[in-house]
Amino acid sequence: MKLRDGGGLFRELARNRTLYLMFVPIALYFLLFAYLPMTGIVMAFKEFNFRDGIWLSPWNGVKNFKFFFISGKALQVTANTFFYNFLFLALYTLFSVAVAIFVAEMKGRYFKKAAQSFMFLPYFISWVVVSAMVYNFFNYDTGTFNHLIAALGAKPLNLYSTPADWYFLLPFLYVWKWVGFGSVLYLAAIMGIDPEIYEAATIDGASVFQRIRSITLPSLRMTMTVLVLLGVGRIMRGEFDMFWQLIGNNGPLIDSTDIIDTLVFRSIMGSQDFAMASAAGLYQSLLCLAIILLANALVRRVDEDYALF
């Protein structure tokens, strides 16, 4: 087998030429719009100047990486990035699946259609506006929330100097913003299940909960694996806009809420050094690569169909 396939690149291409041709447009797109600019990665090792441009500026070794590591915060922000994304991914998956199952299985057509439509609204509210609303609701001196609890005689909440509160608020806002999206993906998967299987189970006397446990959940496993793997592949990339708009430069919160992207942005805000940003990006890429290769290999070991590639 091996031998016959060995010289078989052309034979393989010939045998499946329609299929390979069908892949040409996307391959071309990614070559031009992704791989060509990707060569600019060399900038991470260069001292950029406009005269020579990105590809011909002089090399400067690993100097562009130094700021990130001498900051003394590399480990902390890497851990924060991982921790927040992990939490986001877990909660997002949990809520999306729950919403999808309820929407698919429960009665009340108009109710669930309305609820599902509402869930899409947060997508349209940019983080700038979310941050203005959160500030208005929670700020210490004039916030609505503090007026409310002051009326109840409780101690005012000092959100913007209490890191612990953000461990709750950030995941909450993340799920709030994205649950509409996630639930649609799982819902689409549920819609692919053959209704006859459900009918048969119902006739056999299975309860709703039993049907969900033994039919719906198992058939979501593949979609879930793929979506989680896709999430894992981005686990070192922070939701920059969210963190920057909500917290930005708020000193007391920085240690517990700073992610790689915000630290880098804050550090080179003034200098706008292309090359330093590129270096930090490369660091994130390498971590993501290692993590996704590992996760994908593990999944492939269990079932090849579930793996991303």
Partner: peptide, 12 residues
Amino acid sequence: KNEVATVNQVLI
């Protein structure tokens, strides 16, 4: 440039 970036972050 590395020191400037780091000091900037510390001051903020």
